[in-house]
Amino acid sequence: MPVETSLAPSSATQGFTPRAHALAEAKALAHDLAEQGIPVCDIGAILGVTFQRASQLVNS
């Protein structure tokens, strides 16, 4: 399943620091993957974080 990404800032993330922008993108991706039924441990692997951090992103 392809995931669309864009390097152009969205209206929701304009003015964010790069770190805040990356966090917002990671949260959005984690939420999208979880909604598709992807297990949290796999979301962590996709994002390159621990499953605990992936869980935090999904639940934030």
Rank of each mutant, 00 (worst) to 15 (best):
G48R: 03
R19P: 14
E25W: 04
A28H: 10
L23K: 12
P39T: 03
T5N: 09
H31D: 05
A34S: 10
T17Y: 12
Q36P: 01
Q52D: 09
A45R: 10
H31M: 04
L29G: 07
T17M: 10
H31C: 04
P2N: 08
V40S: 04
Q56M: 12
I43Y: 05
S60K: 09
M1R: 11
L29I: 03
T17R: 11
P2D: 14
L7T: 10
A22S: 13
A24W: 10
I46D: 10
S6A: 07
Q56W: 12
G15V: 03
D42A: 08
V49T: 06
A45W: 02
G15M: 04
P18C: 01
S10M: 12
I43C: 04
Q36N: 02
P18H: 05
L23A: 09
L29D: 06
D32P: 11
V49I: 08
T13S: 11
A24N: 08
I46T: 13
H21T: 14
P39R: 01
P18G: 02
Q14Y: 15
I38P: 10
S60Y: 10
V3M: 09
A12L: 15
E35W: 00
S10P: 10
V3D: 13
I38V: 15
E25H: 09
S60V: 11
G15N: 02
Q14R: 15
H21F: 10
L57A: 00
V49M: 04
V58H: 00
C41S: 05
A54L: 05
Q52H: 11
F51R: 07
K27Y: 00
T50G: 14
T13D: 14
N59M: 00
P2F: 09
P39Y: 06
G44H: 08
L47Q: 07
A12M: 15
A22T: 13
F51G: 01
P39Q: 06
H21L: 14
L57F: 04
I46R: 04
A26S: 13
A8W: 01
G37I: 11
V3H: 08
K27I: 03
V40P: 05
A12P: 14
A45S: 03
F16G: 01
S11K: 11
R19L: 15
Q56G: 10
S55Y: 04
P18L: 03
A45G: 02
G15H: 05
P2Q: 06
G44W: 04
I43S: 09
P18Y: 11
L29P: 04
A45L: 06
C41G: 11
C41P: 07
Q36I: 01
T50A: 05
G15C: 02
Q14W: 11
